[in-house]
Amino acid sequence: MDNWSWEIFWDAFPVVLEGLGITVGLTFACYLFALIFGFVWTFLRRIPFKPLNWIVTWVMEFIRSTPPLVQLFFIYFAWPMVPVVGMTLSPFASAVLGLGLHFSTYIGEVYRSGIEGVEKGQWEASRALNFSTSQKWLKVILPQAIPPTIPMLGNYLIIMFKEVPLASTIGVVGILHMANSYGAQYWAYLEPLTIVAILFLVLSYPSAILISKLEKRMNRRFNKNEALNSSKGATT
């Protein structure tokens, strides 16, 4: 442990902390993108046209099973050269696009599981009440499908937070980038990288606990509702 120096630790701390805003901002930007784009996947998969379904499923599988790092490189370096597009993206925007797209495939699956979790009777009831498609989705299905998925969505937020340092490879100045450049400047990687690890732990561990609490609470609530419904069904 002789190489550890508290002096460097405290010197590097504010430098690394500067990048925190960008890391957290990027996390939320990617997350928002993934939340919105997840709907697109879910929607595309519901179109009752077999070949399209098949294509969408495989495209999702493709995005999901290839490394996000390569996808980032693809979007950052290759995207501007695709003839039709011809515009360069800032590192931040490519990171949002790359990571957001990668995780939207996961989020889409979460939505799907939520929608499939809505009981069949609810679909039939909204049909019996002559609801239009938009009424059916907005008033009956989605309000029931989304809340149970909230803990899962929260988990993906944490996972995403941990993937965001990948963006430092294409030059987004997050905490990892800060730590690496500090290390390169003073030839001291040990302390700044330790700070990064501590920051990640400090931010993600409490949120993980929070989410597992939320999950328990949700489970209780929905189970209670279910119990209530079934008892109602029994009495009437």
């Binding site: 937070f161 993937e163 340092p165 990948l166 990640f200």
Partner: peptide, 11 residues
């Protein structure tokens, strides 16, 4: 689980 793989790799 609390820190990211890329940070662990560098670390």
């Amino acid at each position: 689980r609390g820190t990211s793989l890329i940070v662990q790799l560098f670390w």
